[in-house]
């Protein structure tokens, strides 16, 4: 979102990530309805927020692209462009932060709801007061959360030693690399594209795993 592709490939990828996250959330809620397992509910909630954050990101990026094209003929569109960018980035970041906090809390396997509330409050307050460093603070926070989430999935793979757990662990490691890479997005378009490619690889692993889970 910070560096915009003229071709709009990011809109397509973000929509795809949103759809895959939504599928994962729906599957988790279905499993929750069958098992009443608290962790599957948290997993579903986390991916619902992540899915929504991707859809918001895609929508606002699409609106920015539309306005950019319009701005060629009308320079008056620029304030709208800035407003879309601001609104899109903030909404995406807040939704993604909530999703990552819930997912991290799920991996901790604790029953204390107060811990979840504390993690949410600390993260959102840190973002709220970070002002012009909003994006940097978000990327640091998300990287920290992805580290903890990845540890959980790597441990899960070491316990199960099967293909599905390996795909999941790899997916979250790629999301971690993508998150680290996003920190360099201000350095140029290349890093922005690379971050999307890493996320794409991660979501392809998740999709592959999803296929294996549903395969009879």
């Amino acid at each position: 979102m910070v560096h915009l592709s003229a071709s709009g490939y990011d809109v397509i990828l973000e929509t795809l990530f949103g759809v895959i996250s939504l599928l994962l959330a729906l599957m988790a809620f279905r499993v929750y309805s069958r098992t009443d397992q608290r962790q599957t509910k948290l997993f579903g909630i986390a991916f619902s927020f992540m899915s929504l954050s991707y859809f918001v990101q895609a929508l606002f990026n699409y609106m920015i692209i539309s306005k950019t094209h319009a701005a060629v003929c009308a320079s008056l569109a620029l304030p709208i462009f800035a407003w879309y960018n601001f609104l899109g980035v903030y909404t995406h970041i807040i939704l993604m932060t909530i999703g990552l906090v819930v997912l991290t809390y799920m991996t901790l396997r604790v029953q204390k709801v107060l811990l979840l509330i504390m993690m949410l409050v600390v993260s959102l307050v840190a973002l709220f007061f970070s002002e012009e460093h909003f994006l940097t603070v978000f990327l640091i926070l998300s990287t920290v959360y992805f580290v903890f989430i990845s540890i959980h999935f790597v441990k899960n793979y070491r316990k199960n030693k099967d293909k599905k757990s390996l795909l999941t662990a790899l997916a979250f490691l790629f999301l971690l690399f993508g998150s680290i890479n996003f920190m360099f997005c201000t350095q140029g378009e290349f890093f922005y594209t690379l971050a999307h490619v890493l996320a794409l690889v991660a979501y392809m692993f998740i999709l592959w795993d999803f296929y294996l889970v549903l395969k009879k």
Binding site: R34, T35, H152, F153, K155, N156, K164, L212, V213
Partner: peptide
């Protein structure tokens, strides 16, 4: 329902370490 979908449920729960 649990018995019918046990195989899928177990694969999903194992993949993501949701115990």
């Amino acid at each position: 329902n649990y018995l019918e979908e046990y195989s899928t449920i177990k694969k999903f729960v194992d993949s993501y370490g949701l115990e």
